[in-house]
Write a protein that binds this DNA or RNA. Structure first.
Lengths: 190, 190
DNA sequence: TCTAGAATAGAATGATCATTCTCCATCAGT
DNA sequence: ACTGATGGAGAATGATCATTCTATTCTAGA
């Protein structure tokens, strides 16, 4: 299986899949060695500890996930791009191996706030917020930073609810909220 | 420490605190025995497996959390009660040992969909949704079930974002979104 | 073909895991 | 005081953990 990739790629791919499916602590190095086909020696030469490997795998997932989001929202103006996020989420939630946001799961599992794993999760949310912020700015919203924060909450909320309840329709509900935010960016009354 | 409580209460209390702080898999039975002051024999007599103990501890947390929410939103009419949720969340997020939603964390950590732990997490979200649904119904919204689902997404989204980023202000952003949902329950245009 | 270096499979290590067992102290009923 | 059961502390068990080591195979260069 996948012998045509470099050992490092095979390693990160397998690690990413295993920890997403079973969690970080429940995934042993043995399982990673077996799934990746990379020897223990090579593994520890590339990444000296399990934490370093997990960090690298999550960082790779950050890249892939952001590219998936950006590529899937590449048509139309900024508002259309923001709108396109929620149907994408719906498809993701309905995919058979969906298990929530890997970064929320990782941060929730790791207690130590100084862990590199927590730092990667924070960085992922920063990157996502930055992307949303750029689009909201292009929409001309005066309070675009606040709108971006609100969209982040909608995305992560829908993801968490879909993971726990199994209902992909959470993406639709979040999309309907987003629709309101995008229609009238500043509260009209009050 | 807390010798005046029953062994079962001490056990569940310590278990709840430990798994919330460090995760399920990273919490050993040894740590639970030491923290609770309950002997191994009594522990395994009350709960025959770790999973049973964790399930009971999470179920207790479900009760406590829901009571915390309901008691904190007991003043005024239904709309005021819904509004009161978000300031409560803000305080919770800012508390020193805040570590996200224990049920999202648990579901994210446990891979097996048939696990009892996942069932408790689902039940908690059902309970929370039911409470929101009751309040939304009392508000007279025609689409009160949808509004309740949307509020659930806001609550869980703010909780997840606050956990990963450490910013308690996520509760304020979610509260501002909720304000809009409560002001104009049905989309006026489209 | 011969050899040095690198990568492999997998055993060894020592810690920790959940769970069970052993031994001892406590205590109620007679 | 004696007995029988109960619960406690903590050792034993056997599995699994992350990490290191060993012994073997492969490969590149002369």
């Amino acid at each position: 299986m996948h012998e045509d990739m470099s050992p490092e790629t095979r390693l990160l791919r397998s690690t990413e899949a295993l920890i997403y499916a079973h969690g970080i602590n429940a995934t042993g190095m043995d399982a990673i060695v077996k799934a990746s086909g990379v020897s223990r020696k090579s593994l520890y030469r590339l990444y000296p500890t399990k934490e370093a490997l997990i960090t690298a795998a999550l960082s790779r997932r950050d890249d892939r996930w952001m590219r998936w989001l950006i590529d899937g929202t590449s048509e139309g103006g900024a508002i259309q791009r923001l709108r396109a996020i929620f149907p994408m989420l719906r498809e993701w939630f309905a995919s058979p191996d969906f298990h929530g946001c890997a970064f929320i799961n990782a941060a929730g599992e790791i207690g130590d706030p100084g862990s590199d794993i927590r730092a990667v999760s924070q960085q992922h949310k920063r990157r996502l917020l930055e992307y949303l912020n750029g689009l909201c700015g292009a929409c001309g919203f005066s309070d675009h930073e606040e709108v971006a924060r609100q969209l982040l909450i909608l995305i992560d909320g829908a993801t968490a609810v879909a993971m726990v309840t199994g209902q992909a329709g959470a993406a639709d509900s979040a999309g309907r909220i987003a629709e309101r935010l995008l229609q009238t960016p500043s509260p009209s009354d009050e």
